[in-house]
Each structure stands twice: as C-alpha cells, then as structure tokens.
C-alpha cells in the first residue's frame, strides 16, 4: 500500500509518500514559507503554497519513483491550522482524489505529529508531550482516543519563545543550526530573575510570563541572557512539571516528545531528569520529523486508510480548530 500525504497547516507545504513496509518513507519534499519579518502571514503563506505545490508534488513522485496512479489513497491534513494555508492543501488533495479517482483520507495534524513520533522512536504507550508553535499539550492514549491531560490555557510554548525572540530582536531567523535563538541566548545566562511560574492544575499559562519577560527587557536593567535563561528555565520546568503529573497519574513508563520545540537539548535534559525519578524512558522524535512535514500526514493516512477511514471529497472541508481528542483512533487498542 502506498499513500501520498499533504501537509499545509502553517508554514510548511510538505508532501510525503509512504508505504506499509520498512523503509516506509519513499519521498519527503517540503517548501517552507519564511516571512520577511514578523510571524506567519496566513494569506501570504497560502499564496506561496499555491505557487510551490505543483513542484513539490512532482518532486515527491520523482523521489519515490512512482506515478500518482501507483498510490492507493491521498491523505491530507484538514486541521488544526491556519485557514488559508489549510485550504491550499485541501483543495489540491480534493482535486487529486477526484481527478485520479483515489480515496481521500482526512488526517488530524496533531495526531500525525504523535503517530510519526511513535513510528520513528518505537515508543509503545507513552505520555506524549506535543510542543510546537501553535500547540502545547500533554497527551496519553486511553479508550480509543488520544486524551489531553493538560495544555496551555493561552499561548503555546513555541509561540512564547518565538514572540519573545522577535520582540527583543533575536529573531528572525528563529532557529540557527538547529538551535532556537532563545535557547542559544539562554545558554549564556545564569541568573534566575523573578518571573512568574504559572501552573493551574494540569494546565499551564504562558502569557503572563511573556508579558513579564518583555517588561524586564524594556527596563534595560537586566541582561538579555539572564532574561532568556529565566524564561526558558521557567517555561520548560512548567511543562515538565505537568508532564510529570500526567506520568504519575497514568502510571505509564515512557515519555515521547514531539513537535518543533522537542528539538531543544535543554528541554530534553529536563525531561530525562524527571523521567529518572519514575524509571521512565524518554523518546524524542528526530528533528527532521519534529517539524511539520508531509511524511507524518502520509503515515497517519496509511494507518487510517487501513482501518477504513475515508472522507467523501465534497465533505473534505478544513477545520481550523480540529482537536486531536475528537479523533477516533481505530488502529490502536
């Protein structure tokens, strides 16, 4: 079985082609939208996707050395994400499905991050920590679905460090040689400042931390390195603390880190220190698949398609706020 998957939820237009035996990745092509300044401008990103899509799909088919006729189904990320961006991927997927008469498989982007993490790390039944620009969630599989144990009450962890980096002039670019600029700056700091640490039950809140960190910066009285150090120390510790609660509560013995922020070495270190208390193991999705990509959509599409999950073309509309705990997962029990 061969599945072609399309990702276009935010800044990456990605096409992956996978099959149901290892090595499972046949193709992985991506086009990344990089804003000239500021954050993602959804409409600009979608225009960029529209101009690149044709080329990306063609390259992916070439890389896999197949024709589109060889695929069994088309998978597409219908959400969650930015409306204009999602619509590009959805439109193309619907067109391919109807023109080549292929089944269309709806994929939830968050579920895809989790599934590719499980596939590539071999973790069996972990507490999953999904940390990205738009998402901060502590997840565990239970009774047919991925359940959210805790999440951010306001902005995502990735958003916190990206906005801070941008506001104080550290970014763009946000990542240099695989290291986030806030991480890089924090490595040079050492002094813990008095910034708020906000955990509410299983949930975290970052907006107060962001405001306080920016206020500290604007006074000019503190070294930026120390602000970065404190911001990182507090934000990461908050996430580790709620993950620890989920681990203690569920009694699971594995932790899986997925999403773009999972690449942070300091974050991984903190998770390892926590896991040691419970004799749990820490798995981290490889950096290339921590960020958005088409392979994860194709792979999740393959799992879903094997269990009969398809969507009629006319019903395949995007869902900007499609939560992962709404999705039934028939391929796990």
């Amino acid at each position: 079985m061969i599945i072609l998957g399309i990702e276009s939820t935010a800044h990456t237009f990605g096409v992956g082609i996978v099959r149901d035996k290892d090595p499972f990745i046949l193709a992985d092509v991506r086009a990344n939208y990089v804003p000239k300044e500021g954050g993602i401008h959804p409409r600009e990103a979608s225009r960029f996707f529209a101009t690149k899509a044709h080329e990306v799909i063609k390259q992916a088919l070439e890389q896999a050395r197949i024709s589109i006729n060889d695929t069994d189904a088309i998978a597409v990320a219908l959400g969650p994400g930015l409306g204009p961006c999602l619509r590009v991927g959805a439109t193309i997927a619907r067109a391919l499905a109807s023109f080549f008469n292929k089944p269309l498989v709806p994929v939830n982007h968050s579920v895809a991050h989790v599934e590719i993490g499980l596939k590539l790390t071999g973790a069996r039944d972990p507490v999953i920590v999904y940390l990205a620009g738009g998402n901060t969630m502590i997840i565990a599989f239970n009774d047919k679905r991925y359940r959210v144990f805790g999440e951010t009450l306001d902005i995502a962890l990735g958003n916190l460090i990206d906005v801070f980096a941008r506001e104080v002039g550290l970014a763009p670019p946000y990542v240099r040689k695989g290291v986030h600029v806030v991480d890089e700056c924090a490595d040079k700091g050492s002094k813990l400042l008095n910034l708020p640490y906000i955990v509410k039950g299983q949930d975290v809140s970052f907006s107060g931390l962001l405001t306080a960190a920016l206020k500290h910066y604007k006074t000019g009285k503190y070294r930026l390195e120390d602000i970065c150090y404190t911001l990182r120390e507090i934000a990461y510790s908050m996430v580790v603390e709620v993950s620890e609660r989920a681990l203690a509560h569920t009694g699971k013995n594995e932790i899986l880190l997925v999403g773009g922020v999972a690449a942070s070495k300091r974050l991984q270190e903190k998770f390892k220190l926590m896991a040691k208390i419970y004799d749990a193991s820490v798995h981290v999705v490889p950096p290339r698949y921590a960020v958005d990509n088409g392979v994860m959509i194709a792979w999740t599409g393959l799992l879903a398609y094997k269990h009969g999950v398809v969507i009629p073309v006319e019903k395949a509309v995007v869902r900007q706020r499609w939560r992962l705990d709404e999705v039934e997962i028939p391929w796990r029990s």
């Binding site: 510790s237 603390e241 040691k276 208390i277």
Partner: peptide, 8 residues
C-alpha cells in the same frame, strides 16, 4: 525536583 534550577 532535579529538573529545576536549584534556586527556582
């Protein structure tokens, strides 16, 4: 908690 800065 070993994962937090000792002062924190």
């Amino acid at each position: 908690k070993p994962y937090r800065d000792p002062l924190l």
